[in-house]
Design a protein around this nucleic acid. Structure first.
Lengths: 343, 343
DNA sequence: TGCGAAATGAGGGGCGTACCTCAGAAAAGC
DNA sequence: GCTTTTCTGAGGTACGCCCCTCATTTCGCA
């Protein structure tokens, strides 16, 4: 009992192959009555189109472009690496991915990059949300090119989908961890902000404040530090803040610059004595988690993001269904104990 | 600039199509020198075999069997559901999965089921570890049928791979959460054991004890409760234990029976007053997490397990490479704040 | 040097689908 | 009734690869 093919449908429906083909591919020139008969036959036989064969015949290939900021944080490096690796394996499925790098925080450059994409069937974009970018996404969508927003969402745009975590929820999770892990019931907390993707960090901050206020109303949250996602800046400003407030119990790092943070804590002899929750599993964060400087890391799996993006784009390109559970990017909480193996 | 095909390789290497084919499919009858030339051409052109076309021509389909215990815990139901759903989507990739149910804890029945599989290209097995089962796996492997162990490992067997989490690490993670979330520094802890898969629960217990001893040496761990993975049993024995030890601070549930646990805590007015860490995101656990009865859930994504198993088996069947990162099942920590959307 | 064996070339048929053309049949309009 | 339009059938070619057969060439070795 092999799976049925177009030929079986033709026989079952009592029509010719050509007609079945017309119905399957929604080509004109078939009476409504006949369409129904064919569809009934398809139903009866449980026919599922062989996508592989179809794509072969269509000689379709998927050309996908990733438009990413030229930021050099560990997270971005990891993301780029994950995309390259996922693209390497996707080559087996006739998918070719290209990475286009754009000056961070430069909407004009981003728009130019988006407009300059030629011969591309789908686009993944990580960029701050601005009106110009939103319009550029609209133009791509208009032209039938699906667009997914990566890591930082582009709401109110014509993007097909967002691949990334809910940063509001991530911030809430961080708050719960900070509040519960802190040694004192009414902790004093320092927030180290970054800047990179304005939107996601803002959302994390919002969620953090909300949950702190609700569950740990006795906590004191000091004015946040602008670390600019730069380890040196983080190191210096954090040192200043800790000098000014000797009784800090916890640290929440919602941006990049883990190396600077770790460095300052070690220098002040505070490693392991202050509760630290940070975002993204960078090499520095992993090491700090292992030696106890950082207590918990909240992260999104860049490998998952890369693979999910490719799947989502492919599905959008040829209208295949998706498994929603598979595309849900998790807000992962990592302690020293559940750290996945390196590499 | 299309991607190169076998014809391009033939031209580039200065050999015929037949020879390229022999090399690609490792068929005999090609001089070593020629093999090298062909491989160089492949390298030079960056050829990647079109797996879809290859499988089409081979008219290969993947018939996979899942051998599962007939246990009716929520976790098993979720796992079955995930497998069915993954199998539904895998139909597009000419993969047909079948679920074979076997009496739990019956090695003979398991062995019989494994031996009775006909016309199957790969097997996924979830069963307690026994010598008979190990031998049955060996026979399958001997016959060239890849086997993966699901959820509970079968070490020292000829299984191709284990798809599931490191339960030792999961137990350690639970200990860290219990120790840190408990309201008292030297908490009294009750462990609710199950029984289902002897091996994984034992490992969790080991990891839990190890980490409690190391990081929270002041903690008191009471004799564990044998819940038999049954809500009614859990409910009753837990009530007895809590009556006997009124000063319990934390609960670690490493098996099934969440409904019973929640019920007893509610009945005693202890919901939200005792720190509770449990395994697996069942509907009861989700609800308890949301209303604060359970503080943290440690879980493994059944959808991921199902999909990963199918990918691993397919890769084993036709020798395709795998993305190791993609097949790493995470030890997920879920709080109320980072609960993935239901469904 | 010649011989058998090994290596290679040439070609065909097929997998399940897409897409094209052209002739003929059925339906619609007058 | 007729013509005109709309449907339908038949058949071919192609996609990239697998697998088979049957010559023909090249090689290793006595």
């Amino acid at each position: 009992m092999q799976r049925p093919t177009v030929n079986d449908i033709a026989k079952e429906a009592g029509v010719s192959l050509a007609t079945v083909d017309r119905v399957l591919n929604a080509r004109p020139g078939v009476r409504a009555r006949t369409v129904v008969r064919v569809n009934e036959a398809i139903e009866r036989l449980g026919y599922v189109r062989d996508v592989a064969a179809a794509n072969l015949a269509r000689r379709r290939s998927y050309r996908v472009a990733f438009v990413l900021p030229d930021s050099r944080t560990s997270f971005m490096q990891a993301l780029r690496g994950a995309i390259e690796s996922a693209a390497g394996l996707a080559a087996f499925d006739r998918t070719a991915a290209r990475i286009v790098t754009v000056a961070a925080f430069d909407p004009t450059a981003t728009v130019r990059a988006l407009a300059g994409l030629d011969g591309v069937d789908g686009v993944a974009l990580m960029a701050p949300e601005t009106p110009q970018v939103r319009d550029a996404i609209g133009r791509l969508a208009q032209a039938g090119t699906p667009v997914v927003a990566l890591v930082s969402d582009q709401p109110n745009s014509a993007r097909n989908r967002f691949v990334g975590i809910n940063n509001l929820a991530a911030g809430r999770t961080a708050a719960q961890l900070v509040g519960r892990f802190a040694r004192r019931p009414d902790p004093t907390v320092v927030v180290v902000a970054g800047s990179m993707m304005a939107r996601d960090q803002m959302e994390r901050r919002l969620g953090f404040d909300e949950t702190m206020l609700r569950f740990f109303p006795g906590a004191t949250i000091l004015p946040s530090i602008e670390g600019r996602d730069d380890s040196d800046v983080v190191a210096q400003r954090l040192a200043e803040a800790l000098a000014a407030h000797p009784r800090v119990d916890a640290l929440y790092a919602l941006g990049a610059g883990h190396r600077g943070l770790v460095h300052t804590l070690a220098a002040l002899g505070l490693a392991g004595r202050i509760t630290v929750v940070a975002h993204e599993l960078t090499p520095a964060a992993r090491a700090a988690l292992e030696d106890g400087t950082i207590d918990a890391v909240i992260t999104q799996d860049v490998g998952h993001i890369a693979r999910s993006t490719l799947r989502v784009l492919r599905a959008a390109i040829d209208g295949t269904p998706l498994d929603p559970g598979q595309e849900q990017i998790r807000i992962e909480i990592l302690l020293r104990e559940n750290l996945p193996p390196a590499g």
